[in-house]
Computed example of a mutant assay.
Amino acid sequence: MPLFGELAIVFVAGLLTGLATGLGVLPFFLTEQITGRWLVALWGIAAGVLLSAASVGLLIEGATDGEFAHVAAGCLAGIGFVYGVDRLLADYDLVTGTDISPDRRTIILVVGVLTLHSLPEGVAVGVAFADVDPDVAFTIGEFGVSTLAVSMLVAISIINVPEGLAIAIPLVASGMGRWRVVGWAVFSGLPQPIGAVGAYVLTASLQQLLPVSFGFAAGALLYLVVAEFLPAGVSAGEALPGGGRTELAVGTVVGFLGMLGLLTLL
């Protein structure tokens, strides 16, 4: 099969994993408004999902594929990068005379970080398709799709669903319409087909860079959890008994364990 045909197959595979992010918004079509304990718990669930994805899904996976020092360096770079963007957005009014509301700043950070995070997932898909695997699940023309590639495609798609939920929570909480939230969730997954194609073409070099990119994405997610999701949960629970800390803690544990179960299973 010509290279163009192979790249088209890999692109479609990456696109499918990216589109799966939109499925995370589905629960919000079942309710008109989310307030009180449920809102606090949802902030916790989102924080737990991202914390599990960062620690188990990215840091440990990156350390498995390469040296821990490279992963740690990428992690620190990711934290520093998102902190810099956060400060830039906080000072936006000083530069332009226009104020960015806290909700809008959070939306920009959440969508931006999770869009950035989706690129290494796309790279993982591309590497799986390019990796030599003697077990061929099926063929498309002359192109053999390995069982490793199929497994990675299914795994990333399933993992993207709770990540879509993590994107949806702050957007829905800010009052954004459900279909717009779906659009932003899908948008955050669009780098995956790009990363998949790039990784398929440059497999050897990208495999060496994977530990750093995993660490970078993990650092970005960790900053998001500590600086945005958990404080937002605390703020949403101020009027609840005990400040809503129990609901936030339970939600965080549920999100972490749920995502950990998926990562372990897949």
Score class of each variant (00 low, 15 high):
Leu88Ala: 15
Ile158Pro: 03
Ser146Thr: 15
Gly215Asn: 09
Leu42Val: 05
Pro102Lys: 05
Ser118Leu: 14
Asp135Gly: 07
Gly78Phe: 13
Ala155Leu: 05
Leu206Cys: 06
Ala168Asn: 14
Pro170Arg: 09
Val111Gln: 01
Val253Leu: 13
Gly84Trp: 05
Leu76Pro: 09
Leu114Pro: 09
Val95Ser: 06
Thr31Glu: 10
Tyr83Pro: 03
Ala77Thr: 00
Met152Phe: 10
Leu222Ile: 05
Val254Ser: 03
Phe214Cys: 03
Gly44Asn: 02
Val49Asp: 01
Ala227Gly: 03
Ala41Asn: 04
Gly84Gln: 11
Ala185Asn: 05
Val234Ser: 03
Gly24Lys: 01
Ala166Asn: 07
Ser146Ile: 09
Ile194Met: 09
Met259Cys: 07
Val25Met: 08
Leu116Glu: 04
Val161Cys: 08
His117Tyr: 12
Phe229Asn: 00
Val172Glu: 05
Ala166Gly: 12
Val132Ile: 15
Val226Tyr: 06
Pro211Thr: 14
Ala218Phe: 12
Ala73Glu: 11
Leu39Ile: 10
Leu165Met: 13
Pro170Thr: 13
Leu210Arg: 02
Ser188Lys: 01
Tyr223Ser: 08
Val71Pro: 00
Leu51Pro: 01
Ala199Pro: 08
Gly237Ser: 06
Ile169Leu: 14
Val253Ala: 06
Leu42Asp: 00
Ala232Trp: 00
Pro191Asp: 11
Ser52His: 01
Glu142Val: 06
Ile60Asn: 01
Ala77Lys: 02
Glu228Leu: 15
Phe216Asn: 04
Ala168Arg: 11
Pro241Glu: 08
Val110Asp: 04
Val113Gly: 08
Leu51Tyr: 02
Thr17Gln: 07
Arg245Leu: 15
Ala173Pro: 07
Ile34Gln: 02
Gly22Asn: 05
Ser235Ile: 13
His117Ala: 15
